[in-house]
Nucleic acid binder design. Sequence first.
DNA 1: CTAGGGTTAG
Length: 628
Amino acid sequence: MKKARQLCSLHCTNTTSTTNSWTTQLRDLAKQGDYHEALLLYRRLLRSGDPSPAAFTFPFALKSCAALSLPLLGAQLHSHVVRTGSQSDPFVLTALISMYCKCRFIDSARKLFDENPLCRTLSVCYNALIAGYTYNRRFSDAINVFCRMREVGVLVNDVTILGLVPGCTVPKDRYFGISVHGFVVRCGLDTDLSVANCLLTMYVRCGSIELARNLFYDMPERGLITWNAMISGYAQNGLATQVLELYHEMESLGICPDPVALVGVLSSCANLGARKVGLKVEQQIESGRFGYNLFLKNALINMNARCGNLVRARSIFDEMPEKTLVSWTAIIGGYGMHGQGEIAVELFDEMIKTGIKPDGAVFVSILSACSHAGLTNKGLGYFSLMESNYGLQLGLEHYSCVVDLLGRAGRLAEAHGLIESMPVEPDGVVWGALLGACKIHRNVNLAELAFNRVIKFEPWNIGFYVLMSNMYTEAKDMEGVRRVRVMMRERKLKKDPGCSYVECKGRTHLFMVGDRSHPQTEEMYRMLDRLEGLVKELGGYEKTDPDGRTEELVNGVGVHSERLAIAFGLLNTGLGREILVIKNLRICGDCHLFIKLVSKVVDRQFVIRDATRFHHFKDGACSCNEFW
DNA sequence: CTAGGGTTAG
C-alpha cells in the first residue's frame, strides 16, 4: 500500500498529467477507499492553477470528505462548486447532499435540496436525501421525502428503495416495510436482487424472521448476499440450528461461502457448543479459500472459547496484530465463562492500558467473569468506575450482573438494596439474579419477594417456578411447594429441566438434574460421594473461594447435572484425558467452583463447553451428534 | 444516491 502511494506521488509530480488522468487517479483512489490520498491529490490539482477541470473531480473529492467526515472541507468544496458553476451537474449535486448527510449536517443537505430547483426533478437527489435521513436516523423525514417524490411524479427506482428501507429497524416499523414491499412488487422492482436482499434484511431487523424466510424461499434467484442475510438473520435472532441447516444447504448446493457467512456460522457454533462444525469451519478458513479478516478472527475467538478450547482462542487473540474492542470482549468473556476471573481481570486492565475505550458489552463480560470467580470486590470496583471514569450508562444488564455478583457472595441485603436504589425500573433479569442468589444462600423470605417480582416479568419462565419450588422443598415448606405447583398448573407450564452433556468415545451422554436413568447411576453417585469427601478433607471450598462462598456437592433437590456428567466422565475416560463437560452456563453459572475444586482434587483437566442454545436439540441427544 | 458481518449476564 505504502509503495503504491509513493509510486502515485512520483507519478503526479513528475509527469505533466492531463486533467483526465488526474481525475481517473482521484476516482480510483476514492474507489479503493484511499480517501486521504484522494484529497491530497485534489489539493495538488487545485494548486495546478486551472480551476475548471476540478469540476469533474468534485464528486470524488466530496465522497472522500463524506467518508472521512470532514464537513469543513466539504463546505469549502461546496463554495468552489458554486464559483465554478457546477451546481447544475446532477453528479455534483448528489455528492454534495450525500457529503452533508454523512457528515451529519443533514439540514445543510436539505437547504441545498430545497433551494436548487433542479434537485426537485432528479431521482438521484431525492435518493441521496432519503438515504441521508435514514443514515441520520430521521426515518419519518425519509418517509416524507419519499411520499413527496411520488406526489410530484419523480421516478422511484431501486436505489430509492435501498436508501429508504434500512430505516425500518424496530418491530413496529415492519408495517411500513411491508407496504414498501408491496409497492416494490407493484413497480416490478422486486426482481432486483439488491432490493430483495434489502427487504430481507429489513424483515430480520424488525424481528419478522418468518417474513424474511418467506421472502428468501420465494426469491427466484439468490446471491451470496441473500444467503448471508438469511444466515445472519437467523444468527441474530438466536436461531442457531437454522443457521447450521442453511449452511449445510448452501454447501450441498455447492455455493462457496465468504467470511460474512462464516462469521454467522461460527457465532451459531459458539451458541450451540457445536465444536465439530466449528472446527471444520476453522480448518476451511485456514486453507485460505474463503478469505480472512478481523470479523472472522473475533468470531473464531468466540467459537473456540465457547466450544471448550480456551487455549486456541487465546493464541488467535495473541496473534492478532490489531485487536478491536470486540476481540477483547470475546476473550475476556471466554475466561469469565471458564471461571478464570483472574485472567479476565488481567486482560481487562491490559486492554485499558492499551488505550481502548471500554463499552457496555465488555463491562458485562468482566462483571460476570468477576461474579463467576468470586472476585466480588474487584467487580464492584469496575462497576463503580463505569459511570464516573468511562462515562458509560448503566444498563439493566449491568445491574443484573452486580446483583449476581453480590448475591453469589452472600451479600443478599446489599444486592436487594442495590435493586431498590436503581434509577431505572428493574426487570425480570435483575430480580432473577437475586432469586438465584437466594437459592444458593437459602434465604427463603427474600426469595419469595424476588420470585413474586420476577414472575410478573416472565410468567412463562419455568425455571423460576422450579427454583422456588425446590427452595420450599429444602426448607420443608410443603405448603409453599403446593402453592408453586398450583401456579405452574394454572399457567400450563411444563417442566423443561436443564441438562449437561459429556463426550465419551465419540458419543454424547446427557444428564438431567438428579438423573437416575443412566445404567451407571450407582457408580456415579458413589463417585460423587467420594469427591465430596475429598474436597471437604482438603478444605477446598474455603481455600479456593476468596469470598468464602460454599457450594455443596449434593443438594436436597437432586444432584446437579454437570456433576453427574463429571462423575460419568471420571468413570469412563482414560487417565490423563480431558473430560469435556457441556453445560448451559447461562442457566446455571454455579458449576465453575465445583469443577475447579474437583479438578484439583483428582488432578484432571475439565474442558467446559457452553451450550447456551443446546436445548434446541433436546428432542434427542443423538441429533446433536450430526453437528458435532 | 445503493443490499449482507464479530462481542453482552440469568
